[in-house]
Amino acid sequence: MSELYPTYYLYLSAFLFGAGIFIVISKRNVIFVLVGIELILNSANLLLATFSKADLNGQTFAIFSIVLTVCEVAIALAILLNVYKTHRSSNLDELNELSNE
């Protein structure tokens, strides 16, 4: 079923990667940066799924990658909650010191 336009999936993966990098570099809110990181990880998953052959290795590693991403987002948000409690801001420009005094 994927005989049609096979390399277009690769171009889509490159586009997702580029958009993710743009968001991570330019946006200043922590949640926005996490969204950008999700886009980058999804582009890698799409690449893995495109190249998986009859032994289904690509799919298996993409599943492992999804599980690790979920762990990472959970811990990142827990850290964000702690940081917000002391600094009262989730803007990355203002979060450059350890304590707020």
């Binding site: 990667f17 200043r28 803007n91």
Partner: peptide
Amino acid sequence: SESKNSILALIISLAIF
């Protein structure tokens, strides 16, 4: 959320793409 360094970010992401 405002964005800083949009032009630089655009150049870098376009280069990687």
